[in-house]
Design a protein around this nucleic acid. Structure first.
Lengths: 231, 231
DNA sequence: CGGAGGATTGAAGGCTATCAAAGTCCGTGG
DNA sequence: CCACGGACTTTGATAGCCTTCAATCCTCCG
């Protein structure tokens, strides 16, 4: 049975700051759901739209053109909020990159609850503002950076984002980590092709900047060099 | 003297929905300010950060690399909110594209006022969510679209955005409009060079898709063709 | 009229995409 | 245990889009 009391992201997600009574109310509206790697998070449910909190795993927000080009426009980690409350619906679809668990709510229910709980709306606002900041700095990357700069920036961001997932406060960025992305997905994040991504990874390895112990593993050998390359 | 009562964006900005007493309180915290075209909106004031509402004019949000490359990451029109309340400060700078008037607040004051007025925070949340949607669809453009697609998409967005500025509810997108951007700024929005922008404009003109009565004026002759090109 | 900034046009080159093939990893089944 | 198959990745060759560099042309104002 899903329960907020045992939720691992209870103190990091937008639910934090709610008192017990409120948590109980929210709990009764939502339910847990598992999504396996590669599966889309179906966004319609009983004719109602959904929003969700990520409990565990990593998901991508992706938009695509009619002719099949894809761009990953966001990545959601544990405790992140996904979906579009209030009015409009965004046409980005959500797909799990790893096996994931989420806590889903019917949008109508969530909207109403949020309007009645300013503290929750405030948390959501802070999150949305941060996400907007992050997205805007990604626009710089997409519009103005070269392939080597994109790859370096990407690896540095990954090493920071993936260090946060541990429960204990992390001590700076991770030196070694496991990418939740395939090469194609890295390409879809950076606006490149899979071949260019592969070549840049190989080049960084040959230059002694990183090690690639396996397809998904990355070890940053020379962080200073990456920072210099990131532009 | 600045006064919310006569403010032309009073009913569209986040101030809408506040009662008279609240408006008076907000009014006493903020002040009007003019910025001429090309001038940055100075973001520090008496050692305190600022946030603002756009009353009139168009401003750009821009980030740049050390070596001088620029990317416009957002454009603010009348009634839009700019700045970063609550905690972090974003490193995008704000520059007026046209002569502009804004209503500025010390961030501390604004934060406090917002926390006490959930209705205002809600308005800000809705705005921020919409801006995030818009920004994400722009990521698709920057990462995956070709120069002709970028230009077509840009012209269509402009014709919609600029139609909204009139007081009366607009009847669909504008057929003819005046760009608030120079060619270089169009390039900075789309992640292209000024030469490529110029060539694409010329090509659209030669193909009979648009007319260019003057440097800043654009007339859309064949909207269907633009839609097809936009990808 | 003359100057200056912005815009357009032209030629050449480089970066990344595209097309193609070989290599690697991993799970499955013999 | 090893062979096999398939997906993913790497590597190579080529092409093309957009940038870069450079010169000319507007257009607006003093």
């Amino acid at each position: 049975m899903s329960s907020c009391e045992t939720c691992v992201v209870r103190n990091r997600a937008i639910c934090s700051g709610l008192d017990n009574k409120e948590i109980t109310a929210l709990n009764s509206m939502g339910r847990r759901r598992s999504v396996s790697a590669g599966e889309p998070l179906i966004w319609e449910d009983d004719d109602s739209l959904l929003v969700a909190n990520v409990i565990d795993g990593v998901l991508k927000l992706v938009t695509s053109t009619e002719d099949g080009r894809e761009q990953i426009v966001g990545v959601a980690y544990p405790s992140d909020f996904i979906g579009r409350p209030f009015g409009q619906t965004s046409r980005a679809s959500v797909v799990a990159l790893t096996d994931a668990r989420v806590c889903v709510f019917a949008r109508n229910d969530f909207d109403r609850f949020a309007r009645e709980h300013p503290e929750l709306e405030h948390k959501l606002l802070e999150r949305t503002l941060s996400e907007l900041d992050r997205t805007r700095s990604w626009m710089m990357l997409l519009g103005r950076k070269t392939a080597p700069e994109k790859i370096a920036t990407f690896l540095l961001e990954m090493s920071e984002r993936l260090a946060e997932t541990g429960c204990q406060p992390s001590f700076g960025p991770a030196r070694r980590f496991s990418l939740p992305f395939s090469r194609q997905q890295v390409a879809d994040v950076l606006g490149l092709t899979i071949e260019t991504v592969s070549r840049q990874f190989t080049k960084l390895k040959n230059d002694g900047v990183i090690e690639l112990p396996s397809r998904r593993e990355v070890e940053i050998v020379n962080r200073g060099a990456l920072l210099a390359l990131a532009g």
